[in-house]
């Protein structure tokens, strides 16, 4: 049963990743694109977690943490660039 639930969750997040990729390609404005990238990062973290669960070893903690950190910092940096036309004031 666990295997079926795991396959279901992984397919859901893979489909979600495809949807955000589609959104990234067709988004009307730049903040929409940043939002799509932000959502993609969160989906990728979920995929990393589920992959570790599937392979049966401990969480690939460093990969998940690095993804969440770089995702957050890049979102904020993009937005700051849009708002102020510079990242470091």
């Amino acid at each position: 049963m666990l295997d079926y639930a795991l396959s279901f969750a992984i397919s859901c997040f893979a489909l979600a990743l495809l949807l955000t990729l589609w959104r990234l390609a067709t988004a009307p404005t730049i903040p929409d694109r940043i939002l799509a990238v932000d959502t993609m990062v969160v989906n990728v973290i979920a995929l990393i977690v589920l992959y570790s669960l599937m392979r049966g070893h401990a969480l690939n903690f460093e990969a998940a943490m690095l993804f969440s950190m770089t995702g957050f910092v890049s979102t904020v940096a993009f937005c700051k660039y849009l708002l102020r036309r510079s990242i470091i004031e």
């Binding site: 795991l6 969750a9 997040f13 489909l15 979600a16 959104r23």
Partner: peptide, 14 residues
């Protein structure tokens, strides 16, 4: 929990 996570992740991107 896994099914819930999959459903919510998909709804968020949808």
């Amino acid at each position: 929990l896994l099914v819930i996570s999959g459903v919510f992740g998909l709804i968020g991107s949808f």
